[in-house]
Simulated assay, not measured.
Amino acid sequence: MKGFIFEELNGGASCRTYLIVNPRTREALIVDPVLELVPSYLQRLGRDQLRLSLVVDTHTHADHLSGGRELARMTNSVHAGAPQDVVQQPLHEGDVLMLGDLRIEVWETPGHTEDSLVLKMEDRVLTGDTLLIGATGRTDLPTGDAEAEYRSLQRLLSLPEATLVYPSHDYGGRTFSTIGHERLTNPRLRLDYEVFMRLMTSPRSEKPARLEEALAYNTRPRNAREEYVAASEQTPAFF
């Protein structure tokens, strides 16, 4: 389907949240929402009278509190993706999400986390924290696996060069890239297997500022009470 609506909702912040809309049916999907920004997402949906059908988390976030469960609750939509024992609808390799006639394919891309997912559309791919602009997701945090990430990245590199890349984080104010551009310029994608493995398994001292808080919140049992938590300063430690 041509002519779908695609927006980044966080105004260029390092955490990226995406809105995908079928304009004919007004069905919407939101990817990787941040808890503190849920009110702004609701305002955006209300502005154009959009019907949110799915909220997807591409992986278990370790640097911010996911707004997926709260947003789904407030809109009577379905929270999908990861963590699989937390969301209402776990997503798996080959699953297809439909917004009317708009098709979104799910890829499993473990590495940054064991539950990492990518959402593939006709001309673009939402890469979560698997492939970033000029970098890749780190693999030294809980459930990370450098070898699995190497394989996932090679799979992404098999996409056509013109495929647009929209990651869930960017710390340089960049909005998107392409597979071809990343293949040519991303330093980590230019490493051979052995060098990549040494780099990605080397100990790192810096951790996301909200690591323990985020993991505790984002892996809570499905029916746990949602509570807003004041935003805190985040550091670019997630890639």
Rank of each mutant, 00 (worst) to 15 (best):
F4P: 01
E7D: 12
V21L: 00
N22L: 02
T25I: 02
A28G: 03
V38T: 07
V38E: 10
V38W: 05
P39L: 10
S40Y: 11
S40W: 12
S40K: 13
R44F: 08
G46W: 04
R47P: 03
R47E: 15
R51H: 15
L54N: 09
V55L: 05
V55N: 06
T58N: 14
H59Q: 07
T60W: 05
H61T: 06
H61Q: 12
S66N: 08
G68P: 00
A72C: 11
A72W: 06
T75G: 05
N76W: 06
S77N: 14
V78E: 10
V78P: 03
H79Q: 13
A82S: 14
P83C: 12
Q88K: 06
Q88N: 03
P90K: 01
P90E: 03
H92E: 09
H92F: 13
D95M: 00
D95W: 00
V96C: 04
L99F: 02
G100V: 03
G100A: 06
D101A: 08
I104D: 04
V106R: 01
W107K: 03
G111M: 02
H112K: 04
H112G: 11
H112P: 10
E114L: 12
V118R: 03
L119N: 00
K120W: 06
R124C: 10
G128H: 01
T130E: 10
L131D: 00
L132E: 05
L132I: 02
A135C: 00
T136Y: 01
G137E: 07
G137W: 00
G137M: 02
R138C: 05
G144A: 05
D145W: 03
D145E: 09
D145T: 00
A146S: 06
A146I: 00
E147L: 02
E149R: 14
E149Q: 15
R151T: 08
S152V: 04
Q154E: 14
R155Y: 08
L157M: 13
S158Y: 02
P160G: 07
E161I: 03
A162K: 12
A162F: 10
T163I: 04
L164T: 10
V165E: 05
V165P: 01
P167A: 12
H169G: 05
D170R: 04
Y171R: 14
T178I: 06
G180S: 12
G180F: 10
H181A: 15
E182D: 13
R183T: 04
L184P: 00
N186V: 10
N186S: 09
L191Y: 03
D192F: 09
E194M: 13
F196G: 12
M197A: 01
M197R: 03
R198Y: 06
M200G: 12
M200C: 11
M200A: 14
T201V: 02
T201N: 15
R204F: 00
R204N: 06
E206F: 14
E206W: 12
K207T: 15
A214I: 09
L215P: 04
L215F: 11
A216E: 14
T219K: 01
R220P: 07
R222C: 08
R222Y: 05
N223D: 15
E226A: 11
E226I: 13
V229Q: 15
A230I: 08
A230G: 15
S232P: 01
Q234H: 13
T235S: 15
A237Q: 11
F238E: 15
F239L: 09
